[in-house]
Amino acid sequence: MGAVTIWPAAVFDGLLALALLWLAWQATHGAGLFRSVVSFIVFGLLMALAWVRLEAPDIALAEAAIGAGVTGALLLSALGRLEYSDDRGASAPREWWLWVPAGLAVLGLLAVVAWQLPTPGLGEHVDSALARSGVDNPVTAVLLNFRAFDTLLEVGVLLLAAIVLWSFGAVARPLVPAVPSPALPALGRLLFPVFVLLSVYLLWRGSHAPGGAFQAGAVLGAGGILMLLSGRARGCPARFLGVAFYRWVWLVWWPWRPGRPLWGSVSLPILSLGQPRRSCCLS
């Protein structure tokens, strides 16, 4: 009986692994940049499934929002600024007879090592200290309490990335949406409150269940991107989301946040679209 219940899971894992491998190969070696980017976004979504299979729902939420969502938006917006017709995919490296065996050897070594890891882990430490941490969700406890300094530096990295993007200045060629859809502005206006509501819910939920400010910020950021994209199509309704406003809100809020980069993850994607306020109002 045991074997019967285990098999479907094993088959699912195997198919997932194969799909991930194929998508990763397409993203890094496939022909055509657009196809690679799309493969990578699907790769991110399937990774979220893998996190669920590995009993990491927090990461699954984050991966779906960040890994597939925000990174995908960033990649597509970068792709929109490149002329990508010149890429015919990576040709096989000339020294393949050297690389392939060496790669396989390293891979085998890594697999053997990973297979034999004893994985002692810190689960017991976390469980015993959880009561004193003030929250019920162990992941939140580690992030905001036990390893809060990591989180502080991480907020620093996010903030730094935003400043760096700013420091590069405006791109000569602003993003031109490939398909201006008439439905997009309405959809953006309609959905933005839902995004806000959902992010508030995730924020509240994080203290006792998978969720938290991180995922909440990602959802809010995705909503902001949608607003921005839809705003570009008709005038400037996205102006109240403009960079200047966000910078101030963010910098005022940042020191008071318990630690998660809520406003940071909101502002980063908006900033990375270049100088949205200016380019938006010029269009």
Partner: peptide, 27 residues
């Protein structure tokens, strides 16, 4: 980033500090 890297005794924390340092150096 540099100061955090030199002070920290935690392997992962050092990774984050390195990213802080690397990104600012790139910029």
């Amino acid at each position: 980033g540099l100061n955090a890297l030199f002070l920290s005794a935690d392997l992962f924390n050092i990774y984050v500090a390195q990213e802080l340092m690397g990104l600012s150096a790139v910029a």
